[in-house]
Nucleic acid binder design. Structure first.
Length: 780
DNA sequence: GGTTGCACTTAGCATTTGCGTA
DNA sequence: TACGCAAATGCTAAGTGCAACC
């Protein structure tokens, strides 16, 4: 009861903070009509809620909350029955849920909700023994025979050699087209060429050796033992973070204008103005919340004189500043190769100096060694803090973590660190508090590092352990659906959703963030119940904004008991009430941990994603396929996971155009094939009429041409299918975070697909442990 | 048992790089 | 060689979950 009250109070607090005016607005700032507000404002609406369900077990009103035309159907999804991804992401992701309620009404609602509780404790949970822990070592550890990284450096080398030509050489026509020169000139040219070739060879050799060194230097931490769960390192040394460059004031000819008059701003005020000016092209600056947050934070940084003068944002003219930055960006784009190379060299130097640390004697790459520069906060979705000023991080804000006996990083001249600590139970190198939410941020290692890799490996091992326990866990949550205790029923249904739909846990959120939810924080307004829908029984329609304000829309047939429970959970509740008001992620995870050590809601996502990949790969791959077809199968399996996990992306801006180009290419190829076939027919006839060696050769040539063109066509068509199917689906997130890489490596080895066709360089670095240790027999 | 802070993973968008093609 | 595009990489927001504390 107390828990429910607290949940309610929290929500209440949040609602008060977020003005109803803001909440009822569409992302574009326009007010949208809100029937839901009306409904909940009326006292008679108390039990009617946005969730429509039948009265009793009889016929049901089949109500769909949003315009069905807005929802793209996506069928054929095995796991959830019918997962639907909305193609119109931009539109739908920004869709805001209308919510408004007076606190008095909310209080009444809480009391009503209390009436629904059965509080007879039933001991339904069974503790189950743990299984093996930690990272299992693979039975077979095979050395990687391919050199997946070879391709890219060779190409770079080629280009470099080309670039190193003297200016004279650059202008010389090459090869056969060269004009005849004098013998002296030829001789000089020849010796030049020899020189160049030798130089080339030397460089190639050096590079090869470098690479060899790097390979042999590569730390195979997975072949060593782990320190302990708490101790993360024995020694850690680094250079500290790299600070963002100081602000460069605008040239005198670039003016900020207020009320039509040019105003020279102080450097601090001007810097913040430049943050806004840079974003003028972006939709953010059209949003009222963004504008208000920016303006109030900006005002705080102004001098008293500036603050007195600048009273309204609408009178501020940033256009000159905006133009200046656009021009600067153009200039950068139009730099010569040499100028670009200077910048590139400087960046490499920085990475070399700050981008690596020494961890237990091994050189490890740092993930983010550059401190975040100041700017304006860009939240995702309808974030109440968008537009606020992200302040410049000073050395005095930064805590350093390294070993006691190491060389302590030097703070910038005239400054000192916030503190220097030597805590080997954490993995971060530096940390600071960001000023928007007051939360800590960290500088940590790259995913290719031991610390990250080990944790990743462990994650997949936990998911594999779940595979062994999942049947008994499923039996248990089915039993819980019939518990006499409301809390246990809710928990049973929540775990069912987490398992079946790969929903996130849904922790309680602080008051000042976008209104997004996960499983445990679902509200009544996020589901609609349909006794029958599209020929299926007991359908739950989900519609809510999840992490990053990505819309989750799905119509799922569920078991009858789940459906009945959901009806019970929403009884006497209003749209904004919690669907699972008796549980939190903490007690849900506690229950899961009792079933299996290390089990949390998150593990189900990893487990279901990896299982789906393995099943789909088995189903979609056959031996007679070409490598291209196998890759398409892999992408399809990957896509099934991305759909399950609801990993969406905005369609690429150039999507339509590039598809059109591809289609034109396909058409052209088809025409070429037709032409080639005609020629083949003629060659056949010629050979039949007057057989000779020449005619035979010609015939063979034409046959090969048709075959080659047909293969090219097939490749293009596969590309077209793949691209179309990937339009709004992001494959990368699941590949990097949810799919046990050993499944991929085993599949590549079994089906002779080069690993670099599936994993790029970064991914191969991250999954080096899996690539090294996995053979083709690996089973998740 | 709940709250809070901290440490870490997961996530999509923005920017840069480099490849294929005209 | 320049250009346009897709892929790769970088950036940082937004989640999860644990442990200390009350």
């Amino acid at each position: 009861m107390k828990l429910e009250k607290e949940k309610h109070d929290k929500r209440e607090k949040k609602k008060i903070k977020l003005s109803s005016k803001d909440r009822e607005k569409e992302p574009n700032g326009k007010h949208k009509p809100s029937s839901k507000v009306k409904q909940s404002d009326s006292p008679s609406a108390v039990s009617s809620s946005a969730v429509k369900c039948e009265a009793g077990d009889g016929d049901m009103h089949e109500d769909v909350k949003a315009d069905p035309s807005e929802r793209a159907q996506h069928d054929g999804h095995e796991k959830s029955g019918s997962l639907e991804i909305n193609n119109n992401i931009e539109k739908n992701n920004n869709k805001q849920k209308t919510q408004s309620k007076s606190s008095k009404e909310r209080h009444n609602r809480k009391e009503k909700s209390e009436q629904t509780a059965d509080v007879k404790p039933v001991d339904g949970d069974s503790n189950q023994a743990d299984e093996g822990q930690g990272c299992e070592s693979e039975a077979t550890r095979k050395q990687e025979t391919d050199e997946p990284q070879a391709a890219a450096p060779v190409k770079i080398k080629k280009k470099k050699v080309k670039d190193e030509k003297s200016p004279d050489d650059k202008n010389q026509p090459s090869g056969k087209k060269r004009k005849k020169q004098s013998p002296e000139h030829d001789k000089a040219e020849k010796s030049k060429n020899i020189e160049r070739d030798e130089d080339d060879k030397k460089k190639k050799k050096a590079k090869k050796e470098d690479k060899k060194d790097q390979e042999s230097d590569k730390w195979k931490w997975w072949e060593e033992g782990k320190l302990s769960d708490t101790q993360k390192w024995s020694s850690l040394e680094h250079k500290g973070p790299y600070f963002a460059p100081e602000y460069e004031p605008l040239p005198d000819n670039v003016c900020f204008c207020y009320d039509g008059q040019p105003v020279k701003l102080s450097p601090a005020t001007e810097e913040i103005a430049s943050f806004y000016a840079k974003m003028l092209d972006h939709e953010y600056t059209t949003k009222e919340v963004f504008q208000n947050n920016f303006f109030s934070d900006w005002k705080e940084e102004m001098t008293p004189k500036e603050s007195e003068l600048i009273q309204t944002l609408s009178k501020c003219d940033f256009s000159q500043i905006h133009k200046y930055f656009v021009e600067k960006s153009e200039e950068r784009k139009n730099m010569t190769k040499e100028e670009k190379q200077v910048l590139k060299d400087e960046a490499s130097r920085l990475t070399e100096e700050y981008g690596y640390c020494l961890l237990d004697g091994h050189r490890e790459k740092i993930g983010n060694f550059k401190l975040e520069p100041p700017g304006l906060f860009r939240g995702r979705g309808e974030h109440p803090k968008m537009g606020k000023l992200k302040k410049r991080i000073q050395p005095e804000d930064v805590a350093i973590n390294c070993s006691e006996n190491s060389k302590i990083p030097e703070p910038p001249a005239g400054h000192r660190w916030k503190r220097v600590q030597h805590d080997n139970t954490v993995t971060w190198l530096a940390s600071w508090l960001e000023n928007i939410h007051g939360r800590p941020k960290y500088i940590m290692l790259n995913p290719s590092s031991k610390l990250k890799g080990e944790k990743d490996w462990q994650k997949y091992e936990t998911a594999r352990r779940l595979k062994m326990r999942v049947n008994s866990i499923r039996k248990q949550y089915r039993r819980d659906w019939k518990s006499r205790e409301m809390k246990i029923r809710q928990r049973g249904v929540a775990i069912y959703f987490i398992d079946k739909l790969a929903l996130r846990a849904g922790n309680e959120k602080d008051d000042e963030s976008a209104d997004t939810v996960g499983c445990c924080s679902l509200r009544v307004e996020h589901i609609s119940l349909h006794r029958r829908l599209d020929g299926q029984e007991y359908v739950v329609e989900f519609d809510f904004l999840g992490k990053d304000s990505i819309r989750y829309y799905n119509k799922v047939p569920v078991e009858k008991q789940v459906f009945k429970n959901l009806k019970l959970f929403i009884k006497y509740k209003d749209p904004e009430d919690d669907l699972f008001d008796r549980i939190t992620t903490i007690n849900l995870n506690k229950t899961l941990n009792e079933s299996m050590s290390g089990l949390t809601a998150k593990v189900f996502r990893t487990y279901n994603a990896s299982t789906t990949l393995q099943d789909q790969l088995n189903k979609l791959t056959t031996e007679d396929m070409t490598v291209e077809e196998k890759i398409l199968s892999y992408n399809r399996a990957n896509r099934a996971v991305a759909i399950l996990c609801n990993h969406q992306r905005a369609a690429p801006k150039t999507f339509e155009k590039s598809m059109q180009l591809l289609q034109e290419k396909i058409q052209k190829k088809k025409e070429q094939i037709e032409e080639a076939k005609k020629e083949l027919k003629e060659a056949k006839k010629a050979h039949k009429d007057a057989p000779s060696d020449k005619s035979k050769k010609l015939l063979e040539k034409k046959e090969k041409a048709v075959q080659r063109l047909s293969e090219q066509l097939k490749k293009l068509q596969l590309q077209e299918t793949d691209r179309e199917e990937n339009k709004v689906i992001a494959l990368g997130t699941s590949k990097l975070n949810y799919l046990d890489p050993r499944i991929t490596v085993a599949w590549c080895k079994k089906h002779q697909v080069p690993i670099e066709k599936i994993y790029n360089k970064t991914q191969r670095d991250k999954f080096a442990w899996a690539i090294d240790m996995t053979d083709e027999n690996f089973q998740f």
